[in-house]
Computed example of a mutant assay.
Amino acid sequence: MSTENYLTQEQIQEGMKKGLEKYENLNFLAKFGMFMGVIQILEFGLKKLLQEKFDYDLDEMEKWTLGKTIKELKEKGLRSDFIILLENIVEHRNYIAHEMLSNMALMNSIVQDLNPYPKDERRLDKAILELENIIFLFDWTNSNNGWD
């Protein structure tokens, strides 16, 4: 394998910087919405990967969750290092989608503006970093036929 099939630290940093630009200057709710939208794009990309690499039917996968999609990729033997990253982002997504907004609303009603950077917002920012890392690695691996 030639060196052109490997990522450098500089490429990863530049890719992450570019991916994070869309979150700049967004408030909490806008970051939440952007995160959820990017997760949907990732989910579709993973389903396309199942279709192209393993001959799955996109229509049959339409209602699959992100977790189910990742489980199928894992069973098909997709790179285990990538699967670990994906499984972690599913945990973030589930918390963010199902609990974060209600937690933030409750905390804001009890303790108004005492914490300028609440725990859930920090958790969202961490999840955004991990998601953008996965998106960058997914795109690079797809472009460089690095799934095997």
Rank of each mutant, 00 (worst) to 15 (best):
M1G: 11
M1V: 06
T3C: 11
E4M: 08
N5S: 05
Y6Q: 10
Y6T: 12
Y6M: 09
E10H: 13
I12S: 02
Q13L: 13
E14A: 14
K17W: 06
K18L: 15
L20F: 10
E21T: 13
Y23W: 06
Y23V: 04
N25R: 06
N27F: 04
N27R: 06
F28Q: 09
F28K: 13
K31S: 06
K31P: 04
K31D: 01
F32K: 07
F32Y: 15
F32D: 02
F32M: 10
G33V: 01
M34H: 06
M34F: 07
M36C: 03
G37K: 11
G37P: 01
G37F: 10
G37H: 14
V38F: 04
I41M: 07
I41Q: 11
I41V: 12
L42Q: 08
E43K: 12
L49N: 03
L50T: 08
E52D: 13
K53C: 00
F54C: 08
F54R: 14
Y56C: 00
D57F: 08
L58D: 07
L58Y: 10
L58K: 13
D59W: 14
E60S: 05
E62N: 06
E62R: 13
W64V: 01
G67S: 02
G67W: 04
G67E: 08
K68G: 13
K68N: 04
T69A: 12
I70E: 01
I70G: 02
E72H: 07
L73P: 15
L73M: 08
L73E: 13
E75C: 03
K76P: 04
G77N: 10
L78M: 15
R79A: 05
I83Y: 01
L86F: 09
E87T: 08
E87C: 07
E87G: 01
N88D: 09
I89V: 12
V90M: 09
V90D: 06
V90Y: 14
H92V: 03
R93C: 00
N94K: 04
Y95V: 03
I96H: 00
E99L: 10
L101A: 03
N103F: 04
N103T: 08
A105W: 15
L106E: 10
L106S: 11
N108P: 12
S109H: 03
S109F: 11
I110W: 06
V111H: 15
D113S: 12
D113K: 10
L114T: 15
Y117C: 08
Y117R: 09
P118H: 00
K119E: 10
D120T: 09
R122N: 02
R122E: 04
R123G: 11
K126E: 05
K126F: 12
A127Q: 11
A127C: 02
I128G: 09
I128S: 07
N133V: 09
N133T: 12
I134Q: 01
I135Y: 15
I135R: 15
F136M: 05
F136N: 00
F136G: 00
F138V: 03
F138T: 07
W140R: 02
W140M: 04
W140V: 03
W140P: 00
T141D: 05
N142H: 15
W147M: 04
